[in-house]
Simulated scan of single mutants.
Amino acid sequence: MKNYFFYFALLLTSLFSFGQKQPQESIIKMPPIIPDSKITILKEVDVLFNTRMGFDNCFVDGDLMSSQFAVNQLRFEIKGKIHDKVYFRFRNRYTKIPDPTTIDNLSRAVDLAYLNIELTPKTKLTLGKMIGDWGGYELLINPIEILSYNVINDKSDNFQVGAAFTYSLEDRKNTFNFQVLNARTKTFQEQYGTTAPPGIVATKTPLSIVANWKGHLFDSKLETTYSAARFIDAENCNRNYLALGNKFKTGKLTLYYDFQYSNEDLDQKCVVSNIIKKQHPYAAQEVTYIDNWIRAEYKIQPKVDVLLTLMANNSYWNGNPDPNKSDCLATSYGIIPTMEYTPFSDLNLKFYVGYIAKKYNYSSYAQTQFNAVDYSSGQLSFGIIAPLLVL
């Protein structure tokens, strides 16, 4: 009798196993949800969340104003090849108010949205919204790595819609980039409104022309990004811009130095205009901004980096009609010491602590004529910096 029970149990086990096996085999034979051709494309595509978040402590003239957590940067990015000769990139910023009322019909929260087409091995054509190639290295570094910008880059529209043509020499050590972009994202009315000086009217061609040279010298120990640009801001009102970006790398040390010069017929940065606005209701004319920016990065241990950023700005009102004028109205200084710790060897995630100290000094003329008052600001931050690659 026991033998009958044994054979009966064996039969049931076999039938059960066969019943379980059949559906598994049928599932395996079904075609994949994502076809192989699409998987090949996905291998060339990166999806990132560029993130900086932490605990910020803000000070004005040494007094604590606030202590709170903040997501300082969150930019979703997707980029890669969709064809052997076509590359795309899209980046949206979630820490900026999405304003659709722009001249390019695209939200200002969108940093990048462009196609890069390889015409020949040495030439490329770029179409869409891209970074203006005028900012030196401060603007080219991933924004999550910059705790605070100097005046010119902080006050500029740095992402514009347009077209670019890039040419590389045979040695690939020298690249030339030519861009034709919109000069701004806002309309003339939005930018200046009632502050537009009498006689100054909107232009029909608010465009900018940019020429840039990127070089690698001395066995690539020295790299350069030198730019010259001209902006049409209004009828008979232009902006001339020059940037000299330098990067020197040796051993554990990387050193950056940017010089930036912006001469503006009509004040686009609005720093000077904000100083004089109580006595002059119109945007300032004939202004000049000069920036100097230095950043040093040193790896003291494989997982520990120390950084020091120094910056300075001079703001001039050359068009002041006062015969007793002082051209330089304001000077600002900044220093940002930072330490970063990377705990994982296979993940680009860093813990950081940094302090942003800035000092704003106004000339005696600005203090007397416009009631400008010197002040200082500070921000002590702890948090993480991570370009999180999720695909």
Rank of each mutant, 00 (worst) to 15 (best):
M1A: 15
K2C: 09
F6L: 15
Y7A: 15
F8E: 13
F18Y: 14
Q22N: 12
P23M: 07
Q24W: 07
Q24C: 12
E25W: 04
M30D: 10
M30F: 12
D36Q: 12
D36K: 14
S37K: 07
K38P: 03
T40A: 14
I41G: 06
L48N: 11
N50H: 14
R52Q: 06
G54H: 03
D61Y: 04
A70E: 12
N72R: 11
L74E: 02
I82F: 08
I82S: 05
N92I: 11
S107H: 02
A113W: 02
A113L: 09
L115T: 02
N116D: 11
I117G: 02
L127P: 03
D133S: 14
G136H: 01
E138F: 01
I141T: 13
S156Q: 08
Y167A: 02
Y167P: 00
S168W: 01
L169K: 10
F178V: 08
F178W: 04
T185M: 10
T185G: 10
Y192F: 12
G193A: 04
A196F: 07
P206K: 03
S208T: 11
K214W: 11
G215I: 05
K221W: 13
K221H: 15
K221Y: 14
N238S: 10
F248M: 05
G251Y: 06
T254N: 08
L255E: 06
Y257E: 05
F259V: 04
S262F: 02
E264G: 03
V272T: 07
I275E: 00
I276M: 00
K277M: 13
K277F: 10
Y282C: 04
Q285Y: 02
E286K: 15
E286L: 11
V287E: 01
I290T: 10
Y298K: 05
K299L: 11
Q301V: 09
L307R: 08
L308S: 03
T309W: 05
A312L: 08
W317R: 02
D327L: 02
G334H: 01
M339P: 00
T342S: 11
L347N: 10
L349C: 11
Y352R: 00
G354R: 00
Y360H: 09
Y362F: 14
S364Q: 12
N371V: 05
Q379S: 12
S381D: 04
L388R: 03
L388V: 12
L388W: 05
L391G: 08
L391S: 09
